[in-house]
Design a protein around this nucleic acid. Structure first.
Length: 253
DNA sequence: GCCAACGTTGGC
DNA sequence: GCCAACGTTGGC
């Protein structure tokens, strides 16, 4: 995904300071969604839903989102059908999502976001200069969608994937079935069950180590400073994304 | 529609 | 950088 800053001005195709986020793909086997109360089309939300959205901090970090006007941006560039369907069909204004840093030294949850605009067509699919261009997408029937998200909290202390895994192993843990922790889980947008959300929020975010840790400030200071060693990778993104492709032959299996 | 080949994700 | 595990593509 990326961010096209203000949710309002992107209605056309200005694409302010766009930067690409993750490359979505994935496998979501389990992770059921809360029951939908109405038909697909209507975005009437009765129950708040929860999600987890991945981004590589090299490409777009929680601090980058914090620096956006109104701390709001569009989550563009999702090019996986399952992730798209989640955004398009199941995300409503007011739903919440964890901001997850992936492909970094310490992957984990770094922020809490709220959906501030329901799904609308990702205009980058028609932008020939974009890496997200999709020649097969018809303007009359957009293939790719995005939502706007607003940062609510930037966690003072990340909740590492490792901690989530440890918690999930405890008997009766609400995290036992969490999509993120399932083998082969790659989806860049995942549903989070309410029990999972509450447990993470109350036990791992609000009171990790027995201290209140979530900070209020929403400023955009301390980019590389306070964060945990993810900001240093400055500009090897291109190398990473373009050059570092490795192919694995899966033949034989 | 099947399935092998290929491409990507993302933790480690 | 390695590699498991997934998704997509395209020949048939």
């Amino acid at each position: 995904m990326s961010i096209c800053s203000s949710p309002n001005k992107d209605s056309d195709n200005t694409a302010p300071q766009s930067r690409k986020l993750h490359k979505a793909a994935g496998a979501l086997s389990t992770a059921p969604l809360p029951p939908e109360t109405t038909s697909k089309g209507s975005k009437v939300s009765s129950t708040r839903r929860y999600f987890l959205m991945k981004s590589e901090p090299d490409v777009f970090s929680v601090d980058d989102l914090a620096a956006q006007p109104n701390q709001t941006g569009c989550w563009e560039g999702v090019r996986n059908y399952q992730a798209r369907n989640l955004m398009r069909d199941h995300m409503h204004v007011g739903d919440q999502a964890f901001f997850y840093h992936s492909s970094c030294k310490v992957p984990g949850i770094v922020g809490i976001m709220e959906v501030s605009r329901a799904a609308y067509p990702d205009h980058f699919q028609w932008d020939k200069g974009s890496k997200y261009y999709d020649a097969g997408s018809d303007r009359e029937a957009p293939r790719w969608w995005m939502v706007d998200i607003t940062l609510q909290e930037r966690l003072e202390e990340k909740v590492p994937l490792e901690v989530l895994r440890e918690e999930a192993l405890k008997p009766g843990s609400p995290l036992a079935g969490m999509a993120l922790l399932q083998k082969g889980s790659r989806l860049s947008v995942q549903p989070v069950r309410e029990e999972e959300w509450k447990f993470i929020h109350e036990k791992l975010i609000m009171a990790p180590k027995g201290t209140g840790v979530v900070r209020e400030e929403r400023g955009e200071e301390g980019k590389t400073s306070s964060t945990d060693g993810e900001g240093e990778k400055g500009e090897k993104k291109d190398e990473k994304r373009l050059g570092g492709k490795k192919k694995k032959r899966r033949t034989g299996t």
